[in-house]
Amino acid sequence: MHRFMRSPMAASWALASPVVLILTFFLLLPIGMITALSFWGSTEFSIYPAFQFDNYEYLFGSSVVRAVFIKTFTFAVITWAITLVIGFTVAYFLTFHVRTLTWQVVLFMVCTIPFLTSNIIRMISWVPFLGRNGIANKTLMDLGLTQEPVEWLLFSEFAVILAFVHLYSLFMVVPIFNTMMRIDKSLIEAARDAGASGFQILTNVVIPLTKPGIMIGSIFVVALVMGDFITVRFMSGSQVANVGRLISNDIGLLQYPSAAATAVVLLCTVLIIIAIMLKFVDIRKEL
């Protein structure tokens, strides 16, 4: 063991090998399998090995599929914009307005804790709020803002986006807070001494220096929303479709080749978006 450790390369490989094995068997191989399967053929009752582009032809030809992809993008963009504003504001407050490290840590923990509880439960917990006889409708009617209960609160696209923001804004807060805390406070002093207004400090100093954190948070949120299927299913009451639901419906119907083809297209889409985002930040440096 000792002599082996002397060769740094071999030691690194030995240490990394379990991770390599697990990711090969449970990530790369499955992705390869899905890709292969996406070229298979299927009938109503069975699937058979083949190398044909039927599944892809159907995908790219269908206007329904196109609409579903557009919907998925829309969810991602709206959720991204809202979580960005929330994440930046919360991180800014914690970094520049909370004065002691202890309080910063405590308030940061308070933000983090819900993220460590069950997503399913957090979705369910919107029901008494948004339901037909829920708190939101009661309040609206008591205030006389509406006569009838508002129907689009629960089981709607509104509910889906609300739940996304609720579940994923943490992924924005954490990396932005992390980069913001590393901003040298004397830079802000210098800007102020040079006569910059608060707004100018924000746009010329804070935001540029926070960009890596914003990018990392954006990558998380976009990937999670694009790949989701359960939030959309639950919060829309199965009335709205996104790509993830397309895949899970096909799986439910045992149409694996079709599910696999959709999955491959989704994967490529997500990876391309992320690759573009990575152009703006060197992730290895930012850790």
């Binding site: 499955p30 990937a223 989704l266």
Partner: peptide, 18 residues
């Protein structure tokens, strides 16, 4: 990094298939 961003349903489906 890819493992973090690959939609979880792909992992679920792929591992099941393997």
């Amino acid at each position: 990094m890819a493992s973090l961003v690959i939609p979880s349903i792909l992992v679920s489906l792929g591992v099941g298939l393997i």
